[in-house]
Design a protein around this nucleic acid. Structure first.
Lengths: 250, 250
DNA sequence: CGAACCCTTGATACGCTTCAACAAGAGTGG
DNA sequence: CCACTCTTGTTGAAGCGTATCAAGGGTTCG
């Protein structure tokens, strides 16, 4: 057995916890916008206009940012903390499909369609979330097409990412999906090596890979047996990056 | 066994085939733009600007509109015919992931990311395809934010559709995915009944549902045994719409 | 007519889930 | 401090869902 240095994830998550829950205390920073909308920082007028629209919430861990079948009137983004997108059933425990770790867009699409949200969004940690009400945003964007283009690019990024997920689900088995996921969340250490710090419970990672926690555990072990990774609790060392890439495929 | 009235799909497809392959012969109509960009028809200046940019191709069945790892410089749409998005491997036979039947957008996202196309696009029938070169389009959209907003909404639709696909792949078994697919491509006939005319080979439908043709056949039979559908070749009668909806789930 | 497709059906094999049991921390309260 | 519970991850055995392989029938086309 490998010695499991199971530092609780709780402690890691606690770092994010806000001091208080005042709605308007820690406002959106320019750096937040850059993270959401890309590199050329916003100019003064764009920044001011957005700050005028934005609604900020602190969402305590476990409660919902929005729920399915609730009409979408805002664009949502997560600034700090992480929020899970998935399906809450009366049956429970909340079937996670994707986690969004701030700063990142949460749901850019539903509001534009005048539709209901397609998924439930539930805070995993205490999270700082912003919403941009669609109606005033639209008239702003009519005057600021450069800003609109940035949103368009962000939406294109979502499409790209979703396409890659469906591709994986369609053509890759569990082991390959895990390999691909590790590569994607891996920071290189040397030429052939890398390191992954797992930032969620393994069962949540499993849910996003559409496998059970049991299978995730077994697949980790299999990759380990092949000599490609080393697992110690929530730290994964990638020993053979090229082999893993080759195995994960497209 | 049910009598399979297997009228060849070839004949159905042939209806779309163009008379000749002149590049500029049958230009993009205003109705095409409405189909792509939604209901309020374009005004004269928008229409003229777009027509000035658009590049139209006739793509014969079997050849590629674009291929993976080729830099994306245009937005693509299919006007007539149908194009498959998927993965072409040297190993062959082209692994289909999604078919796009005109008029519909084919790839709105890749170009905006300055990335390569994520999938190969291959004409299933002879298809009429248009491309909008990104660079000139961008400067146009800066002057026509209303047009840009329409693109944004179209992109949001793609996200919505992809989200639904991944949800299905993650949480539904083959039979339920088929039920959902039937409902989605079903036209109502009465209160409880409906009709689906299959417009592709069954193996292509199977590929989109991420199952084998053998399984598709079996699942069709199972839904039939439950008394919910009646299959005759490429015509499917839905006998019990509510039951099918209930079964397909979310 | 044979060749090349397509869809179907049956038998078998495999991947992954499910169910059950267990070990290791973390939080709680006596 | 220890006993207790809750949660998480791990491991093994059994079972379901779907793929794979092989065979056969129906159409279309040369």
């Amino acid at each position: 057995m490998d010695p499991l240095d199971s530092r609780s994830l709780q402690s890691a998550h606690a770092a994010v916890r806000p001091a208080g829950f005042d709605a308007g205390s820690a406002l959106c920073q320019p750096s937040d916008w850059t993270a959401l909308l890309g590199m050329p920082p916003l100019n003064a007028s764009e920044l001011q206009a957005l700050q005028g629209l934005v609604v900020q919430h602190w969402v305590p861990a476990g409660s919902f940012v929005f729920t399915r079948q609730q009409p979408a009137t805002q664009l949502y983004a997560v600034l700090d903390g992480s929020v899970g997108l998935g399906l809450a059933r009366a049956d429970e425990p909340f079937h996670l499909e994707r986690t969004v770790r701030g700063p990142q867009w949460l749901d850019l699409a539903s509001a534009w369609l005048g539709a209901e949200h397609a998924q439930d969004a539930r805070a995993i940690n205490d999270a700082r979330v912003i919403g941009l009400p669609l109606q005033p945003l639209r008239s702003l964007l009519m005057r600021q097409p450069a800003l609109q283009e940035r949103l368009l690019v962000a939406l294109a990024g979502t499409v790209h990412s979703l396409t890659s997920v469906t591709h994986g689900l369609m053509h890759k088995d569990a082991e390959r999906r895990l390999a691909a996921w590790l590569l994607q969340s891996c920071e290189a250490v040397g030429e052939r090596q890398g390191r992954v710090a797992l930032k969620e419970r393994k069962r949540d990672i499993a849910a996003q890979l559409a496998i059970t926690p049991e299978t995730l555990s077994r697949m980790m072990r299999q990759l380990n047996r092949k000599g490609w990774i080393e697992v110690q609790g929530y730290q994964v060392q990638v020993l053979d990056l090229p082999a893993l890439r080759e195995f994960a495929g497209d």
